[in-house]
């Protein structure tokens, strides 16, 4: 969990005693499940692309391996906020504290994903130039 370099003050979070209702927890479980699926799918795609890259000669193989690395990184990045969501669902008390950890990790995930998509944009641009 991203607690060491968190952007928020930990002390005032522990003061909050808010407990999510059952209905609210269901919504949190839903996003938790979807993010887990996405993380696993990213790992799956990254693994298959890695295999394909090794079997492809030349620059296309290298581009595929770089793509595989980006998908595997995205898998890790999307897995990170799940811990916070899990804690919100399974523990009583400190719900807001764990939710904020999840939100902070989600923010980190989106920031990292932005850079990864930026790199992918570069790769697609190279591929367009190669085709033209």
């Amino acid at each position: 969990m991203n607690t060491a370099n968190s952007q928020f003050d930990d002390s005032d979070l522990k003061m909050s005693e808010y407990e999510f209702t059952d209905d609210q927890t269901k919504h949190i479980e839903e996003i938790h499940a979807i993010l887990l699926h996405i993380s696993l799918l990213m790992f799956g795609i990254g693994s298959v692309l890695m295999f394909l890259g090794h079997n492809q000669p030349g620059i296309a193989g290298w581009i595929t391996i770089i793509g595989a690395g980006l998908f595997l990184t995205l898998g890790v990045v999307y897995f990170h906020p799940l811990v916070g969501f899990r804690r919100v669902e399974t523990t009583a008390g400190d719900d807001i504290h764990y939710m904020m950890i999840a939100m902070d990790n989600l923010r980190t995930a989106f920031s990292t994903a932005t850079w990864i998509v930026l790199t992918m944009n570069g790769i697609v641009l190279v591929m367009i130039v190669m085709l033209l």
Binding site: Q7, F8, D9, L13, M100, M103, L106, R107
Partner: peptide
């Protein structure tokens, strides 16, 4: 401080 997280998110 919590609002700051949501703003950055």
């Amino acid at each position: 401080s919590q609002n700051a997280i949501f703003a950055k998110l």
